[in-house]
């Protein structure tokens, strides 16, 4: 009985973590789908989004939830600027060159966060919350908000991808870049929108992650591996798979704490990823987008 309660409690944490990972993984997956490279600065984009949201709150004293749109807007713009100034110039070369470039961009972003906010640890306002007791389970209100916020963001993204011209064009480019060009889809504009969305989603993950724990300059780097794991388990290049991948990785990471040191959580995500890469190199979930 106790074990069951413990398992359910950890599953709640897992779903919360999975919601955050999903937002990051969808961005990684979309960028991979269209630009064919693993974006290693994505973790640091998550960090930048969280701090941008925090900065907005500090400047305006707005209520917490304004951090989400503010961070998303900020990280979206930063992502586009990075693409236009750096990635765009090396896009025509091998994708791995973009990969190593993005590794460097990640370090640059992290260093800017350290310079602007210093080494201090920040939290979003709100303080310690008294959990709701449901049956034997303790549910922290913020966890519910995190899940709902992620759900709303993913739903909006889904509507965008399936209902709008630009969203469909993104899926088309991911499917078949050459045909998209022949068809007359304006590739550069769609790539720009991909970065806007990827950055915004990363910031969503960052703000929610910051709400769940604290803000540190390495917060995003530390979840980059689980984010990649979620994207790969879901089948990289397939944003819808990333949702399932995110949940699976989030649950596995939290439930692993039953028998492993919590600091090994990223290693658990990594091991699942490697296992999936070897067994099913295209991810465990069928279908394309």
């Amino acid at each position: 009985m106790y074990i069951l309660v413990e398992l359910l409690q950890l599953s709640i944490y897992g779903i919360v973590l999975g919601s955050i990972l999903t937002l990051g993984a969808i961005g990684v997956s979309m960028i991979f789908g269209i630009l064919r490279f693993a974006h290693f600065a994505h973790g640091d984009l998550i960090t930048v989004g969280a701090y941008t949201g925090l900065g907005f709150l500090m400047m305006t004293n707005a209520p917490f939830w304004f951090a989400l749109p503010a961070g998303m807007a900020g990280a979206a713009i930063i992502a586009v600027l990075i693409d236009q100034t750096v990635y765009k110039r090396i896009r025509r070369r091998q994708p791995v060159i973009l990969l190593i470039s993005s590794f460097g961009i990640g370090l640059i972003l992290r260093s800017f966060v350290q310079i602007i906010w210093g080494p201090h640890v920040f939290s979003f306002p709100g303080g310690i919350q008294r959990p709701w007791l449901v049956w034997e389970l303790a549910i922290i209100p913020n966890h519910v908000w995190i899940f709902l916020a992620a759900l709303i963001i993913v739903t909006l993204l889904h509507l965008f991808l399936t209902r709008t011209r630009v969203g469909k064009a993104m899926r088309a480019m991911s499917d078949n870049m050459d045909l998209a060009l022949i068809t007359g889809i304006p590739a550069e504009r769609i790539i720009m929108i991909t970065w806007l969305l990827g950055g915004a989603l990363a910031a969503g993950a960052g703000v929610l992650l910051g709400l769940d724990s604290r803000l540190t300059p390495t917060m995003g780097w530390n979840i980059l591996l689980p984010v990649f794991a979620a994207a790969i388990v879901g089948g990289i290049g397939r944003p819808y798979g990333a949702i399932a991948g995110g949940m699976l990785i989030g649950l596995a990471m939290e439930i692993s704490t039953l028998f492993l040191e919590p600091s090994y959580k990223p290693a658990v995500a990594f091991l699942i990823m490697v296992a999936v890469l070897i067994a099913r190199p295209h991810g465990i979930f069928k279908g394309a987008w």
């Binding site: 991979f32 693993a38 290693f40 791995v96 990969l99 591996l225 790969i232 990823m273 490697v274 890469l277």
Partner: peptide, 8 residues
């Protein structure tokens, strides 16, 4: 593939 090796 190369990028998977990088992540691994």
């Amino acid at each position: 593939r190369t990028d998977y090796l990088a992540i691994a």
